[in-house]
Design a protein around this nucleic acid. Structure first.
Lengths: 228, 228
DNA sequence: GGTGTATGCTTACGTCGTAAGCCTACCTTA
DNA sequence: TAAGGTAGGCTTACGACGTAAGCATACACC
C-alpha cells in the first residue's frame, strides 16, 4: 500500500507539539492521548521519546526558560538588565500561562533553566551586590514577577474593558454588596478607567528596582553594618 | 439491625474533611472518592452537599481566607497592618500549600474572601492612598506575597539545612556544573549558611513597605503630578 | 398513616497516566 | 544478500478520576 512515510517523531517534535497544545487549550487539555493525536500517533508511542509526563513537563519548562531574555553578567547596568529580564519573564509567562506554577522547583532543571539562573545571579554579583544581597534581590524580584504572572493568569479578564462585565457578574452573585464599601469603590472606579496589567506590573517593578538600588548603595557605603 | 446512626454529613463537615485531607496529602490526594472515604460515605453522596468539585474548591478557598488575619480600616498605622497581613498570608499558605494557586481569581468568591479584600483595600484608602495608589500598593504587595508563597511551595526543601542535600542531588544530575560559576557559588554558600525562608520573606516585605511609604508621602506632598 | 423531600447508595460512562507485550521496518555486519 | 538486533510504532489492560442517572430509605409534617 506504500503508505506515506510519516516524518519520524522525536523528543524535540513531541515537546513542540505539547507546547502548542498547551498554549492553545490550556494545561488541562495537555493529555498524553491528545498530544499523541496531535502528533498523528497513539498515546503509548510518546513514551519512546519521553519517559513520563513529568519528564515531558521538565522538557516544556526548559523550552520556556529558553524563551526568556537573558542578561549577560557584567555587561551594562544591572537595573535595566534586571528590568528587561522581569518584563521578559512576564511576557513569556503570558504566552504560556500553563507554565506559571511549574517554572520554579523542578527537580531536573534543564540547561536553559540553569543558564538563566546563572546569568541572573551573575548579573547581580557583578553589579556589586554581596552574595546575600544578590540572593535577597533575586528573591524579591522573582517572587514579585512570578506572583504577578500568577494573578494575571488567574484573574478572569484580559482586556482593560472586560473588568466591567466580570465585576457585574460577581456583584450579581453577592447579595450584600453594600457591606463592602471599598469593593464598591473598586467596582465603580474600574468600570470608569479600566485596569491595565502592563502599567500595574511596571509600577511595582520600578518600585522594587528603586528600592534595591538604594539597598545596594547603602550596603556599599556602610559595608560593616550587617544589612540583613 | 439498628446500625449505629452516623452523625449526618453537612457542607461544613465535608469542607473540613477536605481541608484536612488536602493538608495531609497534598492537592492531588484530594479526590471525591478519597474525601468520601474520609467522611465514611460513598463518593456520590458528597454531591448532596457540594455541587461539583469546583464548588468544593470555592468553599475551601473561603475557609482559607477566613484564617487570614484581617486589618481594620482606619485603625492604627497602615504599614504595620499590611505587614501583619502579608505575614499572615504567608503563614496560612504555608499551612495549606495546596491553596496557593487557587486563592485569587475564583469566580464565586465567598464572604471571607470579600471581607478580606474589602478590609485590605479599606486600610490603604484610609491611610491616605489615592484610589489608584491603593490599587498599586495592593498589587505589589499581593504579587510579592503570593509569589513568595508559590516559590516556597515549589522549592523542594523546608528546613535551612536541607538545602545542602537537595543541591547535591541537583548537581549530580548536571554534568557540566563548572560552566555555571555563579550557581556553584550559590551551592557552596547555601551549604555553609543555609537558607531561612522567613528572613528572606521579611527582607523583601520591608523593602516593599518602605518603598510604598515613600510613594505615599511623595503623592501627598505633590498631589498634582500624576504619579503613574 | 400517607406523602414529600433530603440524603444516602449503586451503576455506569468517558477520561486520565502508563505497564506489558507484540510487530514490523530499518541498520549493521559477515 | 541473509541474519539478527533494535528503534519505534501498535494494542490491550488496569486502576484512578469527576460525575450523570436513577434507586432506596428515613425523617418531617399534615
Amino acid at each position: 500500500m506504500s503508505p506515506k512515510r510519516r516524518a519520524p517523531l522525536s523528543r524535540e517534535r513531541v515537546l513542540r507539539a505539547a507546547m502548542k497544545l498547551a498554549d492553545a487549550g490550556g494545561f488541562e487539555s495537555l493529555s498524553m492521548r491528545k498530544l499523541a493525536g496531535a502528533c498523528g500517533v497513539e498515546a503509548m508511542s510518546l513514551y519512546n521519546h519521553v519517559s513520563s509526563k513529568e519528564d515531558l513537563l521538565d522538557g516544556l519548562v526548559d523550552l520556556v526558560f529558553a524563551e526568556l531574555e537573558q542578561p549577560t553578567p557584567g555587561e551594562g547596568d544591572w537595573r535595566t538588565a534586571m528590568r528587561r529580564r522581569s518584563i521578559s519573564v512576564r511576557e513569556v509567562l503570558n504566552r504560556h500561562r500553563w507554565a506559571v506554577g511549574l517554572m520554579e522547583g523542578r527537580l531536573a532543571p534543564g540547561p536553559a533553566s540553569l543558564h538563566a539562573h546563572d546569568a541572573t545571579m551573575g548579573t547581580l554579583r557583578e553589579a556589586g551586590f554581596s552574595f546575600r544581597g544578590a540572593v535577597h534581590a533575586l528573591s524579591v524580584l522573582d517572587a514579585y514577577t512570578y506572583g504577578f504572572a500568577l494573578q494575571e493568569k488567574n484573574l478572569p479578564f484580559e482586556e482593560p474593558g472586560e473588568v466591567t462585565e466580570v465585576m457585574a457578574v460577581q456583584q450579581a452573585n453577592v447579595p450584600d454588596m453594600a457591606s463592602y464599601p471599598y469593593l464598591v469603590e473598586v467596582a465603580t472606579e474600574m468600570a470608569k478607567e479600566g485596569y491595565d496589567y502592563t502599567t500595574e506590573f511596571e509600577f511595582g517593578l520600578d518600585l522594587i528596582l528603586d528600592a534595591l538600588e538604594r539597598f545596594r548603595l547603602a550596603a556599599q557605603t556602610a559595608p560593616s553594618r550587617r544589612t540583613a
